[in-house]
């Protein structure tokens, strides 16, 4: 069990309120002691060393820190780790493996949906959440769903193509009814 404090561990004997939480991260149950003010993004990056979740603006604007909490996209810089107690959190590390990419990851590769890659984990998780609710989105719907995620490199065009590619792949992979 790991013990997580915000940035600086409190001095021995310091009276810092700590809560024990259990969060299912990418399918694995993790129990930790955290200070209430620890943000979910820091729990993931510093505590669990899952650095695929990026911290960009830290002001709820850019979406680089987007993860899924119980399947819905959330800006992890704007949720305390204690609020994820008992919930399922999915980060980019849980999407696929190097040999077996998630269709959304494959789409970003096929359609060159990234350049520097900083926005990409957040983009992909927001896209995954969209496709779970809407397997056949229009281009407009993709743009709308990703409008909380900023990219400074691509101009968005290829990101949208990537998501549409993934949507098609996921529909084709669906077992056909006999």
């Amino acid at each position: 069990m790991s013990s997580l404090y915000d940035v600086i561990p409190p001095a021995a004997g310091a009276d810092v309120p700590v809560r024990r939480i259990t969060v299912e991260v990418n399918g694995e149950s993790r129990t930790m002691d955290v200070e209430p003010r620890l943000l979910l993004v820091h729990m993931l990056r510093q505590g669990l060393e899952l650095t695929g979740t990026h911290s960009g603006c830290d002001t709820t604007s850019c979406g680089a820190c987007t993860v899924l909490v119980d399947g819905r996209p959330v800006k992890s810089c704007t949720m305390f780790a204690v609020m994820a107690d008992g919930k399922k959190v999915e980060t980019v590390e849980g999407m696929g493996t190097a040999s077996e990419l998630h269709p959304v990851q494959e789409g970003f590769k096929q359609e060159h949906g990234l350049q520097c890659g900083f926005c990409t984990p957040g983009m992909m998780l927001a896209s995954k959440a969209l496709l779970e609710r809407n397997p056949n989105p229009t281009e407009d719907e993709v743009r709308w769903a990703l409008s909380g995620n900023l990219c400074r490199c691509t101009g968005y065009q290829n990101i949208v193509k990537s998501v549409l590619w993934a949507a098609e792949k996921m529909r084709n992979d669906q077992p056909q009814e006999a």
């Binding site: 996209p73 949720m79 709308w144 769903a145 909380g148």
Partner: peptide
């Protein structure tokens, strides 16, 4: 209101 991700919370 805000953006789609803020709207989930």
């Amino acid at each position: 209101v805000a953006d789609p991700i803020v709207r989930t919370r």
